[in-house]
Amino acid sequence: MQKNVLLVVLLLIASATFAQSKFPENQLSINGFRNPSIGLEYQRNQFSIHAGYYPTNFESGVTTEFLKAGITYWFLPVDEKEIPSSFYGGLSYLRGTTRVYKDENALGVEAGFRWYVWKGLNFRIGVIALTAEGKDLKINPTPSISYSFKF
């Protein structure tokens, strides 16, 4: 078990060292769907911060809304584009604005992949695990479309 953990840590360090040079130094994204939220995201190298409006459906036909802010770590770039496609993991604070989450605090943990289709146009597919005090853990897909500007 310890050998496996050590191997994973070494791979993450090697990935971070290699990837550091592949990600843009500064990037601003306008996110048009719910991953990470409908809002803005600023990325510097492998880390980004985001804030915006987050709608989701825990049950079919019923939308629950949140305000959302958090951080994301980008890793394992997979292509040679100007802005590389890559995997991500993130942590977010959510504040419910509707339904049973109204005025409630929640925590979201996300993982997924961002694919750059053309220039700054990108799609994301991921999954979020959302937890709040006194509520069941919710796991939902998190698709997205965004446009990113490198500067």
Rank of each mutant, 00 (worst) to 15 (best):
S144R: 11
A132S: 15
W74K: 12
I13Y: 03
S148C: 00
Y73G: 02
F75A: 03
P143S: 01
I71G: 10
V9G: 07
L94S: 04
I71E: 06
R99V: 14
S144Y: 12
F33R: 15
S15M: 15
E59G: 14
W115S: 05
K81G: 02
A129S: 12
R99D: 12
R44T: 14
K81Y: 04
Y101D: 08
H50E: 01
W115F: 06
G108A: 04
S37E: 06
S92A: 10
A129E: 06
L76T: 05
G89W: 04
Q43H: 13
T64G: 14
R44A: 11
Y73D: 03
P143T: 07
S37V: 15
P143E: 03
I30P: 09
P141N: 06
R95K: 12
R44S: 12
I83G: 01
N122M: 07
K3G: 15
D136K: 10
G52M: 11
T64V: 08
R124F: 00
A106G: 10
L10E: 09
Y53G: 01
N4D: 09
F47I: 02
P55G: 10
W118C: 08
L91N: 09
F18V: 13
P84H: 01
E80T: 07
S48Q: 00
P77H: 03
F58H: 05
P141G: 13
R44G: 11
I49T: 07
L76R: 04
S85N: 09
E82L: 10
S144G: 06
V100W: 12
V127R: 11
Q43T: 10
H50G: 00
V5P: 07
G126A: 09
P143M: 03
T142Y: 08
N140W: 00
N31P: 15
G108L: 06
V100F: 08
Y54C: 06
V127I: 11
G134C: 11
Y88K: 01
N31F: 15
G96T: 05
I125P: 11
F66T: 04
S144M: 10
L121W: 08
A19N: 13
A106Y: 14
V100D: 07
Q43V: 11
Y147V: 06
I83K: 08
T64C: 12
L137M: 13
N57H: 12
V62S: 12
T98M: 09
G112T: 05
E41C: 00
F151R: 12
N57A: 13
A132K: 07
S86Q: 00
E80L: 11
V62E: 13
L137R: 07
F149S: 01
A14F: 10
